[in-house]
Simulated assay, not measured.
Amino acid sequence: MGLRRSRRRASDGVEVPVESGVSGVSAEDSGFAVELRGVRRQYGRGGGAVQALAGVDLALVRGSFTAVMGPSGSGKSTFLQCAAGLDRPSSGSVRLAGTEITGMRENALTELRRSRLGFVFQAFNLLPSLTVEQNVLLPMRLAGRRQDRRRAGEVLAQVGLADMGRRRPGELSGGQQQRVAIARALVTSPDVIFADEPTGALDTGTAVEVLGLLRHAVSGLGATVVMVTHDPVAAAWADGVLFLAEGVFADRLDGGTAEEIAARMAMLTARRVPVAGVAA
């Protein structure tokens, strides 16, 4: 792919604590791509209620690459769904690029997701009956926008698939399908790309190529990437890692190696309780 791994300095700021003077700054001027304030998500009621998120406070600067890790059942998927507007929190506030989405009507929220967000999933989620080019253009089609084939060609070239537009997903390898998914995520020039275990179904070599593309989306294209992963090697490509436990952010590591991230995860899994006083 010709992409070299690069890392932003930890001092550039991956995640900003609530206590760092955010209050009083207008959303438009804050420079944050993703903001969660007091976000809770509860499923069920009464004695059988499950608190998936127990009060998440988070602000991610634009143009950053953040990995989110945590033990099974820590709330990673719920966090991603609430942050991306795929699920509504029980309480709290979510802003995307300065836009408050918590109380947004469903049709407006759907339009926002199609035009300003990109998604990359472990299972690729490509439509087998469509060509690669048609899959890439799908967000434009669903948003009722003109399907710009030149733009599709540009993003396919960026992910190394310039000559694959007329093929169908079933003719491609898993790594190529995930590159198509990344091209689809990039086609609308989104504010934020949410990636859910994007390398989970890939071999090591292909995973490196996909992570390089996500890294390039940040460093080369100015996108903001939020990636949920269980893999410390994948997380090491991010600017920083946030660790979820019991529905809150319990720890943070900026600029860590895969070994350091794995060690931090092992400590968190063994403890399985939040670290008191750690701001997220």
Rank of each mutant, 00 (worst) to 15 (best):
A108H: 13
A108K: 11
L80I: 15
G103Q: 11
P89M: 04
A83F: 13
E106C: 00
G70Y: 09
M104H: 01
G98C: 12
R95D: 00
G98T: 14
C82L: 06
T99L: 13
S93Q: 14
P71R: 14
R105K: 14
M104C: 06
S77L: 11
F79K: 03
S90N: 06
S77W: 12
A84D: 04
E106G: 00
M104S: 05
L96F: 06
L80G: 04
A84R: 02
M104V: 08
M104D: 06
S72F: 09
G75L: 07
R95I: 05
L96Y: 03
I101T: 14
G103P: 15
M104Y: 06
A84I: 12
G70H: 04
A83N: 02
R88K: 08
P89Y: 10
S77T: 15
A83P: 02
R95S: 06
T99D: 13
R95P: 02
T102K: 04
G85D: 05
L96Q: 02
P71T: 10
K76L: 10
I101D: 06
S90Q: 06
S90M: 03
A83D: 07
F79V: 09
T78F: 10
Q81R: 15
T78Q: 01
S72P: 11
S90D: 09
E106R: 10
N107C: 05
S91R: 14
P71W: 09
S91M: 06
S74Y: 10
D87R: 08
G73F: 11
R95A: 04
G92N: 02
G85M: 08
S77Y: 12
V94A: 00
A97W: 14
G75D: 01
S77G: 08
G85H: 03
F79D: 01
E100Q: 13
S93R: 14
